[in-house]
Write a protein that binds this DNA or RNA. Sequence first.
DNA 1: CATGAATGAGCATTCATTCAT
DNA 2: CATGAATGAATGCTCATTCAT
Lengths: 205, 205, 205, 205
Amino acid sequence: MSEAAVVEPIGKRERTKVANRQAILVAARRVFAKLGYEAATVRDIIRGTELASGTFYNYFRSKEEVFEALADDGARRFRPILRQARENAKSFEDYLHSAFVAYFRFIVEDNQQEGLPIDQRRPHVRMDTPEMSAVYQEVRQSLEDAIAHGDAPRVDADYLACACIGIAQEVGSAMLRRSPPDIAAAADFATGLILKGLQGAPRQG
Amino acid sequence: MSEAAVVEPIGKRERTKVANRQAILVAARRVFAKLGYEAATVRDIIRGTELASGTFYNYFRSKEEVFEALADDGARRFRPILRQARENAKSFEDYLHSAFVAYFRFIVEDNQQEGLPIDQRRPHVRMDTPEMSAVYQEVRQSLEDAIAHGDAPRVDADYLACACIGIAQEVGSAMLRRSPPDIAAAADFATGLILKGLQGAPRQG
Amino acid sequence: MSEAAVVEPIGKRERTKVANRQAILVAARRVFAKLGYEAATVRDIIRGTELASGTFYNYFRSKEEVFEALADDGARRFRPILRQARENAKSFEDYLHSAFVAYFRFIVEDNQQEGLPIDQRRPHVRMDTPEMSAVYQEVRQSLEDAIAHGDAPRVDADYLACACIGIAQEVGSAMLRRSPPDIAAAADFATGLILKGLQGAPRQG
Amino acid sequence: MSEAAVVEPIGKRERTKVANRQAILVAARRVFAKLGYEAATVRDIIRGTELASGTFYNYFRSKEEVFEALADDGARRFRPILRQARENAKSFEDYLHSAFVAYFRFIVEDNQQEGLPIDQRRPHVRMDTPEMSAVYQEVRQSLEDAIAHGDAPRVDADYLACACIGIAQEVGSAMLRRSPPDIAAAADFATGLILKGLQGAPRQG
DNA sequence: CATGAATGAGCATTCATTCAT
DNA sequence: CATGAATGAATGCTCATTCAT
């Protein structure tokens, strides 16, 4: 057994359970990004791996389940970033800005990875990514803290968190359409808008 | 017989043609709302009517085409409302508020129509509805006018219009989740946020 | 009524029964030639006329029935030619030659009419045209006459008639592939082959 | 268990794969013969097997592809026979006769296999079978050789090969209509006709 | 008779999922 | 556990045919 391991250590691309699961997740992320969640099929995902079709079902029961795993993964990667931003932030403004920068950076990176052919003809669809949920949770939490500390007015925290998500998504999309995408400018805009409204949004120049 | 003619002036052919087309559109609207655009199938739509499968293709060539018809329809109903709001508005604030009210009223009505079971298991997807595009166009136009007239600061009109859409969508969704949905409150929140930011958002009470 | 006739004599393209039937037949001939019998649909045929779909069924019960009508028509046009050739012929050779010339002329004309795009990728299919059946009947009759009069050896008339058809079809097809198609040469070849075999086939050169 | 391995040396997977492919081919041959290539549907073919509809697509991508496989198969079986006939032939006449015998034997066998109900209502269609193409190629080659060696007059080789095909098909069909089919007689007729024309065709008796 | 919309059977094809190996 | 062939439900779409007008 140990000899076999020596003879064939990397021969089969590490068909360990962990590796297989990871391979599926990686392929799924790419496929979802390219085709969209609905259009993507389990077959598309396994075609993106070197595994056999049946193997998929040893790890996930359905496309939904991979998506959830992916979402957990995304949130797991994104939430710490957000939380750290909150901890390091000197002010609520500072925090908001950091959060937007983090999110915009995130989608820019995701976009660069994918080939991103994306069918332009079909109606534009947006999906609740796990990152978004993370933003929602974090922003809401921070806001409630800020309100409790008297650092922010007592607004409707749910509505505000939702508004942040909406702004992040739409302004983020618009940013991606420009080249090059200017993360800082977009984050400045979003932060300014939320904090001071139109008056606070940076002048265009 | 002549009375019958008065009661039913439209030839039966014509009548059913219009009615069928309408039935398809209604079913399609419901199906798209329930399953999302991608997941919806032509067969889902016709199942939502009493028509035979082939009949669908006497009216539309594909799912895309129904969607476009729906979009045209939605925009046709919504834009005039928005435009009138702009014309009647005494100020930019007034206009914005009217627009949000109009949109929120719109989605509340749409939501009451549908059975709205909405498949909760699948990831939540949002779609660029035609109403949204209308909002975008109108808001952007109004904003550019306001900037030109010196009534608004010279912000990035594209970003701002996008932000309005994002806010409308997300705050709208959140509002629908509450019962009863309070259109005025949501519109107040959105308008206040955009005009004065957090400071302008109405205090919660 | 007579006045109406004066007012609108050709207004509606002579929607007489005869004209409709003829329109269908004409369209069918074209469609069969372009798409082949199997690939052709009733809808293709009616699309080739100005009639409504239902009208087709006032004249024919199915695609098969149009084809038969077409066949009868073809035979009706072709048989007299053949028969006259037989009556005018000074010898059996003369007759055979005339018959081949008539058939080859026929298919050349038919081919010039059609746009003849004809899908080359799919397996080549030949169909028993009514002309072919006519040839068969006529040739067989003539041959039996010739045998009875002692002008031809007592061969198997069925086989010989079949052979004539086979030769006519295949040499005819080959002739059409050349440009320009040389009817006389093809007829010389076919006649010579049948009468004297290889020795009788015209030398090339 | 070890004995079973001897009895069934092929893994069951492999065995059923080959068997399924074969089953599809067999069914396809029958279906094409019964309905004609165009009229035949993929579903007709799978209905002729015990397989599920989807299984077809594990083996062939389309009806065309089965047909090609069938054609390759037919040609692969038939060409060697023809070639051997050519090599063994003492004369051109001898060769021709052998070729006809081979072809007629072929179609007799094929016909015995099929249930051969053949839908009589639809117009009779003939298809360029792969065997026919093989005949064409072989006959043409042989003829050109014979001409080159001075064993045959310098006729139009293309036309002659076509004529042979036509004769083989039509006389072959006629032969099948008789019972019992007399291969030798049909081959005699065809050979005689081609070599010496009417004079050379065997007298009927 | 002409019309053309409605009908539903039928077709090619894809897909998620199972299961024998 | 991995494999990948088999399965049959489901989908988009076309078509022959009917029938109310």
